[in-house]
Design a protein around this nucleic acid. Structure first.
Lengths: 256, 256
DNA sequence: GCCATTTTTTCGCTATGCGAATATTAATTC
DNA sequence: GAATTAATATTCGCATAGCGAAAAAATGGC
């Protein structure tokens, strides 16, 4: 981006301001000016200016001495949901799957090494994991992440793989990049993925890719629940066909 | 904000950049530089700089000649959800209500003249209205909006009321500020609201306030469905007590 | 190929936003 | 309550960041 002309085409004040907004997501609590300054590396005077600007615009609210984000920031995220017709189609679909199979059903996309949840319908008996639009989870230990990685362009995939930080979320978590490559190859072959207790004990999930009319994988959809309730045969023989069907229906309804 | 000192404490480049982000929510489609420039009033050179910055940061993606927001913008909205413990408590609650009564159940807050949805659990038989985190609806014709307005500080409420744009969403919509004031007074007295086909034909909803430990109303929770399925007696005698109970449970679980 | 439009690049310019320093206020310690 | 420390608000000199205009290059439509 700094190529050519020697002049920076990047608006640094915007970068700094967004950094302040981002800090609220990391900190999880209302913050004072000083805390924002510390969290962002800005001087107190700069942090204050950014905060006052964000407050003026309504994205941040001042309560006493502390700033916190207000509901208006949801507008920024909402633009993602409203600008892509796919989510309007997927939303009722995950609701149907959730109800039909008493599972938690979600759809997500890949962003960096994470999946980002876009829509979700939960059956409470299925899962007590708190997930909402925007929730991130590490792609490599989630069913949807596996699907999305498997069908990502090879070069891009290798870049992502090289950035993965392997952690033992459970004792079942994949910890090795070569093992993960094998898994993804398998996923590519079978066109679905199953993850069993790799991110969370007791949780089993199955995911399939959502393709657009050009055949490109644009999202993934899953069904998840406790492994006690979701027996593998049931998953493969009953749930999976319905999910392929759902993915095809979504594809059929996507604009060209 | 421009008070004192004669110097503007507002960072205009941040304002402009956020204006560009906001434009994507309005436009609902991928945009070219020129379209962004037109939509925001910036010059093409400025619009380009903002777009390149946002792209560099990952919030916007360039596809061919068009820019569109990427899933990373959901991080910005997510900071709202993650910084307030209330939504973690409310999420399973709305799921329970939705399942128990075969309704759509949501929670929202007031922002300007709108309610902004924070969490939702939908039963597809109940509602096919597409709502997700961040969805806005006019407060004055929604059950939750009525509750939130009723319990807003009087001065603030009058300011909001004076900004309401009365439209006939249906033939039942309230169209008069005095009538609305009467309704809100009633809501205050009974501590719940029912809205019947005021925003959407066939839709009936009931809402109660969620209070924090200090007794302040901080959100509203509702149950909604078709007026065919949700008979008024059932709503008042069966659903409403459960909602009061839910609101109390949420309050009990909120941090001090 | 021609023309209109859009995008990209360049660059002079100034006002924007910066950080340092100081004043004021608030919080903490004894 | 007084003294001290920390945080916030304000001021201001300054230089560079970001601007818009203009030109060059690229693209799209006929």
């Amino acid at each position: 981006m700094s190529s050519g002309g020697g002049r920076d085409e990047r608006v640094n004040s915007l970068v700094r301001g967004l950094e302040v907004l981002k800090a609220f997501g990391r900190y999880h609590e209302p913050m004072t000016i000083s805390e924002v300054a510390t969290e962002t590396g800005l001087t107190p005077a700069s942090a204050r200016r950014m905060l006052l600007t964000l407050t003026d615009l309504g994205y941040v609210e001042l309560r006493g001495k502390r700033f916190r984000v207000g509901p208006k920031v949801l507008d920024l995220g909402y633009s993602y949901m409203s600008s892509m017709p796919i989510w309007q189609i997927v939303q009722p679909t995950v609701e149907r799957i959730s109800e039909k199979f008493s599972v938690s059903s979600s759809a997500s996309v890949l962003d960096g090494c994470d999946i980002v949840y876009a829509v979700r319908a939960n059956n409470r008996q299925a899962s007590s994991v708190l997930v909402s639009t925007g929730t991130r989870q590490p792609a490599h230990v989630t069913s949807m992440g596996r699907v999305l990685l498997a069908f990502t362009e090879p070069e891009r995939r290798e870049t992502i793989l090289s950035q993965i930080h392997f952690s033992a979320y459970t004792s079942h978590s994949v910890m090795d990049i070569d093992q993960l490559r094998l898994i993804l190859e398998q996923v590519r072959g079978q066109n679905f993925s199953i993850v069993d207790e790799e991110m969370e004990f007791g949780l089993r999930a199955i995911a399939v890719p959502i393709r657009n009319k050009r055949g490109e994988v644009v999202a993934a959809i899953n069904a998840a629940g406790s492994n006690r309730a979701l027996d593998l045969d049931y998953l493969k023989n009953t749930v999976l066909p319905a999910m392929f069907e759902a993915a095809n229906m979504i594809k059929a309804n996507l604009p060209a």
